[in-house]
Amino acid sequence: MKINWFKYSSPQTFYPLAGKMIPWFAWLAAIFAVAGLYISFAIAPTDFQQGEAYRIIFVHVPAAWMSMVIYIVMAAWAALGLALNARLSAMMAQALAPTGAIFTLLALVTGSLWGKPMWGAWWVWDARLTSELILLFLYLGFIALQSSIDDPRRADKAGALLALVGVVNVPIIYFSVKWWNTLHQGSSINMGAAPKMAATMLLGMLLMALAFWMYTVAVALMRVRCIMLERERSTDWVKELSLSVQSTAGVKS
């Protein structure tokens, strides 16, 4: 049997598929989140050094992971869109960017909430915090560039190129910030030598990461459906879809 790899690469066929996938990922996200939150707040032991305040890492660390993963996935979609000239890939990149930016912001905010009781300061120019802040700037640049170009095809390609340039730069930025940090700061704060984590803590963190991951997929699919409708509003399949929606709504009322 011959498999058509590109069957779902057109918005017309992907739109219903995405609609079917969203509830699955949303439910998975909810289940993982409930399990993860239960483990992190009810089962995981209190840290003997940091007390209860350490529990914020169950949100903070997965958010930071996701912020980085989403940037890489976004750049991969962008590269695919640029190489194959596929509309849907560029739309996926565009749909992922806001979620990535939100997770970056969440990681920054939870980091500073954690920093206040631990380090005694809301903000410390720690290497990880700083590079997370720069990652937020990269996301904002991507979103700003895409939203200020009116022609969607050009916006897609320009954003894709920027995402690729960003991905090349991210490791350089990360290491430069790390070296800058070790030069300028004493060893009063050393996050690198984290104490060994209890297995339950790690499990809670992994479950939360999975929850965030599933949430990202669900939200990105919802957003990509909106983008598809907006961009393809003059095509036949969107018109048929809106007609059928109107007629079913008419029957109900």
Binding site: L138, A144, V165
Partner: peptide, 10 residues
């Protein structure tokens, strides 16, 4: 400025 300044950091 928004695009280029983060890339200037290193």
């Amino acid at each position: 400025a928004l695009l280029v300044l983060p890339l200037y950091i290193p």
